[in-house]
Amino acid sequence: MRRARDPFFWGLFSAGGMLTALLLPALFLVAAITAPMGWFGMTGYEEWVALASHPVTRGGLLVVAFLAFFHAAHRFRYTLYDGLQLYHLDALISIVTYGVAAALTVLAAALLILVV
């Protein structure tokens, strides 16, 4: 079990790192900058709702969110651990970082599955 922890979280970290590296810049650029500014095509509310309520979008976003949260949690855990030399707090840092990632994943699932 102890042996399983590192490869498990590292697997999520690297899958999330790859997925976010490939997808997030373009997604964020459109969703947060060009669309609100009214640049380029899709800027209207109706179009965005149609896209955001599509099952493929929702399923894809859930996968991205799950892996991105665990990617960020793992990285941030090591940043705190090595960057601030908090070795004695490793157990606490792990519980908080992975715990936040898990809680946010549950919230994301609730949002993407339940909220229409």
């Binding site: 399983a4 490869p7 498990f8 590292w10 697997g11 690297s14």
Partner: peptide, 10 residues
């Protein structure tokens, strides 16, 4: 080694 160990684990 990390990649191989992780793939083995999953």
């Amino acid at each position: 080694y990390k990649v191989d160990a992780t793939l083995d684990f999953f």
